[in-house]
Amino acid sequence: MPASLRLFTPDAQYADDGTIERRTAGADVVFDIFRERTADKLPRDLLAAADGIVIWHEMAIDDAFVQLIPRCRIVVRAGVGFDHIDLRATGAAGIPVCNTPDYGTSEVADHAIALMLALGRALLTYHKELTSDPVGNFVTRFDAGHTPLVRRMRGRVFGVVGLGRIGIAAALRAKAFGMEVIAYDPYAVAGIEIATGVRRVASLEALLAESDVVSIHCPLTDETRNMLGAPQFEAMKDDAILINTARGGIVDVPALVAAIEAGSIGGAGIDVLPVEPPRPDDAIVAAYGNLEGSRLDGRLILTPHSAWSSPESAADARRLAVETAMLYLRDGRLRNLVNGEHLATRRG
C-alpha cells in the first residue's frame, strides 16, 4: 500500500482542525496544521516530510524556507496574492506554485463598492454622530461642508486599475450605479473592454486624471510596488476617492495620508497595508488613531484585510487550495500556476 501523502499548512486561517481540508483530500492524506507567522516556530521534521504546502498570507516562503522542504512537490496559496512567496527560489527548486484566484471575487468587489459608498454617502460620519447624540444631531448634519465627500454616484467616473476577475466584478457593480467605468490594464487581452462594456485607457495617468473613484485590482509586483505615490495623487482630482482592496504595497501609504491632509485628493478606503498588522509607528496608525477633528475624519476608512472575508469565501479558499494540491500530487495536473517562467524542472 503506498505511503500517505502529507500536506503542511504553516499559517492556517481557520479555527478547526482542517475539517474542510480533510474532507476534500480524503482519508489517506495526513495534515500538519499550524498557526505561525515565522518559520523558526515550525517543526523541522514535519516540514521535511511534507509533500505539499498549503499556505495562507502570514508566512513568507523564501529561499531559507525552501531549504526546509526537500520533499515538497507543490506550494498552493489559499488565496489570490502571492507576493510573499519567492517564485524564483521555488522555481529553482523545481516546486510549482499555484494560487486560488477563483474564490472571494464577489466579496472583494462588494467591499470595494462598500468603501466607495461609505465615503461617498458619509455613512461612518452619520453613524458616529448619531451614536453620540441621536436626537440633537439628527437634523443638523446635511450640509456639504460637514460631509464634503457626499455626492451623486450616477454619472461619475469609476476607474479600475487591473481588469482581472475582481476588477471586472467591481466594474459591473459600478455600472449598476450608473457610473461610467474606465479601465487601465496593459496586460489584459484585447477586446475585454468590449465584452465588459467599459472604456479602456492607455495609461495610468489618463485614468487618474479622469476618475472620480480609483479602485485598485492588480497584483503586487516589482512593476506595481508603490505605483501610486505623491506624483499620482497630485494628478488625481482633488475630490477623488481611492479604494485599495488589492495589495498594500501598491500604494505609498504615508504619501496617501499626506495627500488627503493636503487636499490633493478627497479621501480613501483602504483594506490592505504594506505591513500587516501595521507597526505602531506607521503613518496610517497615527492618522487613524487621531481622526477626530482632523481633516482625515470622514475621509479615511481602514478595514483589516477583510475584503475577501465571508463564511462562503473562506470555505471556497480552503477547498480549492487542497483540490489544487491533490490534483497535482495525484494526477500531475497543474492549475493556476504562477511561477511557470521560473520552473525549469519539477520535483518527483
Rank of each mutant, 00 (worst) to 15 (best):
G269V: 10
G229K: 00
G263D: 12
E129H: 12
Q67Y: 00
R71D: 04
R151Y: 00
D185R: 04
I113R: 04
T90E: 07
G167A: 10
E292W: 05
D133Y: 00
A39S: 13
R88P: 02
D32G: 15
F82N: 08
R88D: 15
A230V: 12
L117D: 12
L300P: 11
R330I: 06
D110L: 10
I95Y: 12
P10L: 09
M59N: 11
M227R: 14
G52T: 08
P304R: 05
L300T: 11
F34S: 01
R299L: 12
R347L: 12
I192L: 14
F65Y: 05
D222G: 10
V161W: 00
V135W: 13
I250E: 03
R156E: 09
A25H: 04
L320E: 13
A64N: 09
G120W: 01
R318G: 11
D282T: 06
I74R: 11
G289C: 07
A112E: 13
A317V: 09
S313G: 14
M1I: 03
A49P: 03
L296P: 08
E312Q: 12
G155H: 10
G52K: 09
L87F: 15
A171Y: 07
A246D: 10
P254W: 08
A122P: 01
I168F: 01
I260M: 08
A235S: 11
S306G: 09
S106E: 14
H342F: 11
K128L: 13
V108F: 13
R173A: 08
D11L: 04
A169W: 07
G79K: 03
M236Y: 10
L172Y: 02
S294F: 02
R335H: 05
E292Y: 03
A93E: 08
D28F: 03
V75Q: 08
E341Q: 15
V257K: 01
T105R: 04
A321E: 07
F65I: 13
S106P: 10
R37L: 14
I20Y: 09
D331S: 03
A109Y: 14
R279P: 00
L302N: 02
Y184I: 02
L300R: 08
R141L: 11
L334Y: 00
Y14W: 14
F34Y: 14
